[in-house]
Design a binder for these strands. Structure first.
Length: 254
DNA sequence: ATGGTTGGCCTCCAA
C-alpha cells in the first residue's frame, strides 16, 4: 500500500495539481488536509473518476480533511471532541488498517489562545488514543504541525519557544510514542527532510523548512514499512499549477 | 535585500 499525506492549502485552487499527482504517483490511499471548502463544494469527482472511494469532512473557509482510497472505505467517521467545531479529524478503515487523517492546529504564538487550543487538541487525541487497541493496525497521519527532533527544523534557535517546536508539544509527541506509536517515515528519510516550507521569504529556495507531516503507526504496521519519501518536486511547482506550501509525504507498506 | 506569500464568504485573518 502506497499511502500519501499532503496538506494542499485549498483543494479549490490545488484541484488540478492533485489530479496530476494522482495520475503520476498513483497512491493507494491519499490523505489531504486544508481543503478550505465546505463538504458540498468538494470536487469529489477528481477522485471518483479515477476509481477512488472518498470520505470528506469539510468546512467553509478553513481546515477540512479528505481521504481517498482505491479500496473501499469502511467505518468512516469524522470529528472528535478536540476539534471544537473545526474540521480537523476523520478516520476510515481501508486495506485492513485504521487510518486517522489529521490537520492539527498550528498554534500561532506560544502565549496565544491558539496554542492553548493546540494543546487541548493533542490532549483530546491522546484521550481518543487511550480507547484504541495498541495491538491493532493503526496509522495516524496528516499535518501534525509538530517538528519532533532538532533536525526537523531549519534552525533550532529560530524556534526557541515557538509553536511547532515547543517543549509542551514535544511532551505530547512523546506521549503518542509512549502509547505505542512510531514515527515511521523518519528512518527512511535523509537528514533535514522537510515537508513544509513557508511561502514567505523564499523559504523553499533557502531550504528553511520543517518536517511536520508524519505517519505515526502501531507495531503491526511498522513491521511492514518498506520505504518512505518526501515528494519535494511537488513543492517546486510554479506557473499555471502552483505548489502548496507542503510537499506530499509517502509511506509504502507491504 | 533588515527581507515578505498564499488563500478565503477576502481591504483582514490565518498559516
Amino acid at each position: 500500500m502506497k499511502l500519501v499525506t499532503w496538506n494542499v492549502n485549498s483543494l479549490n485552487v490545488r484541484g488540478p495539481l492533485v489530479e496530476q499527482f494522482l495520475d503520476e504517483v498513483s497512491p493507494d490511499v491519499l490523505c489531504i488536509q486544508e481543503l478550505k471548502l465546505p463538504t458540498e463544494r468538494v470536487p469529489q469527482e477528481i477522485f471518483t473518476r479515477r476509481g477512488y472511494h472518498v470520505a470528506v469532512h469539510g468546512q467553509p473557509r478553513w481546515n477540512g480533511v479528505l481521504t481517498a482510497s482505491k479500496t473501499p472505505l469502511e467505518d468512516v467517521s469524522a470529528g472528535f471532541p478536540g476539534e471544537e467545531g473545526q474540521s480537523r479529524m476523520q478516520t476510515v478503515r481501508t486495506n485492513g488498517v485504521q487510518i486517522v487523517n489529521l490537520y492539527c492546529p498550528q498554534g500561532s504564538a506560544a502565549d496565544s489562545p491558539k496554542f492553548a487550543y493546540k494543546k487541548r487538541f493533542f490532549d483530546a487525541l491522546l484521550t481518543w488514543l487511550e480507547a484504541q487497541d495498541p495491538a491493532a493496525p493503526l496509522i495516524i497521519t496528516g499535518d501534525i504541525n509538530i517538528a519532533p527532533n532538532p533536525d526537523d527544523v531549519w534552525s533550532v534557535e529560530a524556534f526557541d519557544n515557538v509553536p511547532t517546536y515547543h517543549p509542551e508539544e514535544h511532551a505530547r509527541w512523546k506521549a503518542l510514542l509512549d502509547w505505542g506509536l512510531t514515527d515511521a517515515a523518519r528512518p527512511h528519510l535523509p537528514d533535514n527532510a522537510y515537508t513544509f516550507w513557508d511561502y514567505r521569504g523564499g523559504s523553499f529556495w533557502k531550504n528553511k523548512g520543517m518536517r511536520i507531516d508524519h505517519f505515526l503507526v502501531t507495531a503491526s504496521v511498522l513491521s511492514g514499512v518498506v520505504s518512505g519519501q518526501v515528494h519535494r518536486s511537488w513543492r517546486k511547482k510554479r506557473g499555471e499549477l502552483k505548489a502548496s506550501d507542503h510537499a506530499p509525504v509517502e509511506l509504502v507498506i507491504s
